[in-house]
């Protein structure tokens, strides 16, 4: 039986007008950390991304929205090359560069790349190990054996993920014993333990209840000061609440990419307007 998250949180679930995180002008945004240029992407014979060009700035939360199957998750998984694991998946044209380095260059070590781009998945996926070992895993595989360094990193990461107070007394119990929301925050703690520059979140709240969702959203806002976050969501309110920039995808194409406020208040493209106002999707 999952334990309910501690509950006296303000439920920031709005149904009418979304609350915006912070107004950012795209032209004033810090220099782009991730640059995607004319990216085409194929799954076998199917072309799933068409000429995507996008510049994701540093230390901001960028949300990818769009109806199911529009390619937003695929694009996200392109960024840390998780798509390499899928047979027949390939980049057709264009390039992705992070800090000016093309991530598909032959001398790029995908393992080094993934160490710098943490990822949180749609369904929380803690390892069948203790909470402590889950968080320490990333450091252990990098060869860290020093107990005090691990202890310190585990505590810092769990605090960073807002989970420390809930689990500090049972660090050595299984991570699978936590509730859904706690598991997802454990996954976030596991991700930030290796201190990536960028955190990719693939619909992190889609399997969670509203209370757990609110906690994660709050966490995202806190993490923004230290990490660049890219979040895929199909929940428009969520994008509105916690992102600075929003990209709207439709049928594998980038339709509009603007500051979140612009997308929701006065979108340029009629398709975007139709989607954000709930007329389709």
């Amino acid at each position: 039986m999952p334990v309910m998250d501690s509950s006296n949180t303000d439920l920031r679930i709005r149904t009418s007008m979304p609350a915006f995180a912070s107004p950012v002008d795209i032209h004033q945004a810090p220099r782009a950390l991730i640059e995607i240029e004319n990216l085409d992407f194929h799954y076998g014979p199917h072309k799933v991304l068409h000429e995507i060009s996008l510049q994701i700035p540093e230390r901001q939360v960028t949300a990818f929205i769009g109806p199911s199957g529009c390619g937003k998750s695929t694009l996200l998984r392109c960024l840390n090359r998780m798509n390499d694991l899928i047979d027949g998946a390939r980049v057709g044209a264009g390039r992705i560069s992070i800090r000016g380095i093309d991530i598909h260059r032959s001398d790029v070590d995908v393992i080094e790349l993934r160490k710098r781009l943490g990822m949180v998945f749609q369904k929380s996926n803690p390892f069948p190990k203790s909470i402590y070992e889950n968080v320490a895993y990333g450091l252990r595989i990098q060869g860290v054996r020093d107990r005090s360094r691990l202890d310190e990193a585990v505590e810092r990461s769990l605090q960073g993920a807002g989970l420390w107070d809930e689990v500090k007394d049972r660090l050595h119990t299984s991570g699978l014993g936590l509730s859904g929301g706690q598991q997802q925050r454990l996954c976030i703690a596991r991700t930030i333990a290796v201190e990536p520059e960028i955190i990719l979140m693939d619909e992190p709240c889609s399997a969670l209840d509203p209370i757990a969702t609110a906690k994660i959203e709050e966490l995202i806002k806190e993490l923004r000061s230290k990490f660049t976050i890219v979040i895929v969501t199909h929940n428009m309110q969520q994008a509105a609440r916690c992102s600075d920039l929003t990209a709207f995808f439709y049928l594998g194409r980038l339709v509009e990419f603007s500051p979140t406020r612009t997308i929701f208040m006065n979108p340029v493209n009629p398709q975007t307007e139709a989607y954000v106002s709930g007329r389709f999707g």
């Binding site: 800090r99 070590d109 080094e112």
Partner: peptide
């Protein structure tokens, strides 16, 4: 030269 360089 860059942080993702593969190193033997």
């Amino acid at each position: 030269t860059h942080p993702y360089q593969s190193r033997p």
